[in-house]
Design a binder for these strands. Structure first.
Length: 264
DNA sequence: CAACCTGTTCGCCA
DNA sequence: ATGGCGAACAGGTT
């Protein structure tokens, strides 16, 4: 599930626990999601600390706790954040369970492509600060995007949109949505796009990012019915623009859906 | 039962 | 050094 807007939605699930103290920490410390993290430090440091605030950047989330403690979470393919009540009994895939007096903060991830990091220090961790501007920010300029696309000019544009270093937060469905909206075929090489197509790509990127944040990101509601997203997984899905049956193929290593008539 | 999956990282190659 | 690509990771779902 989790791309830009879903990440924002899940980040806010834990808002219910803001300002409240963690009274117990239960981790499945041997699981792959903790690769590289000091599990014992999380268990030792987080108890008695308060959840202060959280942020998201692309698909990364950062949760700040009192006492200079920080947890980074990436949801991977199947990660989810949710709130349970204080009597919650965790099951197999509930790898991070942070108990507060009146509720329980849970991170679950069946496939374990997600990741949990821990940092103890006065400032946000170094791995948080790296990376380019968010695609829905003013700093994500057309010139910046164009420079990135040109640098990866020989790869199919679909693959370029999936590179988090240039398009943080974009995943498989967003990339398809953006290319469909910009009328660009997913196999086109970025270096061969016309000036007009680059403009359309930039506008579509920002539009899809912002509009999905206002629906999925706000309350997990559906984007408008005329989005490609609603058609792209159903066999025989149709182009919302011209009704053509969508094509499906692996592009940039991922299943890709597009309209062969209106995307060039 | 086999194929498929909304993500990232690694090693290999150009 | 940089960029592109395919495999690998794990387990649930179709």
């Amino acid at each position: 599930m989790p791309e830009l807007a879903e990440v924002e939605y899940f980040r806010k699930r834990w808002d219910a626990g803001l300002g409240e103290r963690i009274v117990a920490v239960q981790l499945h410390g041997e699981k792959r999601i903790f690769r590289g993290a000091d599990v014992r430090a999380i268990e030792r440091r987080l108890v008695r600390q308060k959840l202060l605030r959280s942020r998201a950047r692309g698909k990364q989330m950062l949760f700040e706790f009192s006492g200079d403690n920080w947890i980074g979470i990436h949801l991977g393919m199947s990660g989810k954040l949710r709130i349970e009540d204080e009597k919650f009994y965790p099951t197999k895939h509930d790898h991070v369970v942070l108990r507060q007096r009146k509720r329980t903060l849970v991170f679950s991830d069946a496939r374990q492509f997600g990741r949990v990091r821990f940092h103890h220090g006065a400032d946000a961790p170094g791995w948080w600060e790296a990376g380019g501007p968010e695609i829905h920010s003013r700093q994500f300029t057309k010139a910046r995007m164009q420079e990135f696309v040109r640098r990866h000019g020989r790869a199919p544009i679909k693959a370029v949109l999936l590179l988090q270093s240039g398009f943080p937060g974009i995943g498989n469905w967003m990339a398809d949505e953006i290319l469909w909206r910009a009328r660009i075929a997913p196999r086109r090489q970025g270096g061969k796009l016309t000036e007009a197509q680059l403009g359309a790509l930039w506008r579509s990127t920002r539009f899809v990012a912002r509009a999905s944040l206002l629906t999925i990101g706000r309350d997990n509601s559906n984007p408008p019915q005329n989005w490609l997203l609603h058609e792209r997984w159903t066999a025989g899905g149709k182009c919302p623009r011209d009704g053509q049956t969508l094509r499906r193929a692996t592009v940039g290593g991922r299943t890709t859906a597009w309209c062969a008539r209106c995307q060039r």
